[in-house]
Design a protein around this nucleic acid. Structure first.
Lengths: 102, 102
DNA sequence: CCGTATCCCGAAAGATACTG
DNA sequence: CAGTATCTTTCGGGATACGG
């Protein structure tokens, strides 16, 4: 899960509350319908997201985080915080390594 | 970095102290020389690992975590702790999802 | 001992078009 | 609206062999 960019974005979006497929798609620039569905289905299978279908026309499907999903959101937050602190250092190290190569 | 199994294992091993290439290879069952070198080089480039070469024959090369590397080890620890608590729940969810499909 | 150089492969991502 | 189906491509990982 930690290796998928779309998992980060999806969980991040759902954190603010229940949302429809279309809303999610609009919040996540660049995602294709296939990847969105695939990501949501995996999260659902793993018990992180709950999927509710309303049997109406046109279709209406809503997604929300489960308790476990919120726990994951907490971990992703820790990762985000770590990144905000340390990624700049990593960037500098990379640039310095490049300089050495030139 | 969080998407590479070898990063977890390498950082985990180096956490206990400075180590040679061969020692690392022996601690990490299944890793090929190529993957070990590739992992170490990436970690070095990103400022997480320091590489020291002793100009002797036969060659002697030692690796150790930098301060930034120890910071990363801390994050990996948080991920490990989260996993120990929640991965069983995810496993259950997966099994339950399978049952539903049968 | 500490690596490089190649080649190969499968899984995952993306683009595109279509449907109940 | 909320997906599926199909095709293509990319890319990281692994196996193997060789070299200073």
């Amino acid at each position: 899960m930690l290796s998928s960019k779309w998992v980060y974005l999806t969980v991040g979006a759902l954190r603010r509350g229940r949302m429809r497929h279309g809303e999610l798609a609009r919040k996540m620039e660049g995602i294709t319908p296939k990847m969105l569905t695939q990501t949501l289905r995996t999260l659902e299978r793993d018990g992180l997201v709950r999927r509710e279908i309303f049997p109406v026309i046109p279709p209406r499907v809503e997604y929300e985080l489960t308790a476990l999903g919120h726990d994951l959101a907490g971990l992703l937050d820790q990762i985000r915080q770590w990144s905000e602190v340390h990624v700049p250092d990593i960037r500098s190290a990379r640039l310095a390594a490049q300089e050495g190569t030139l």
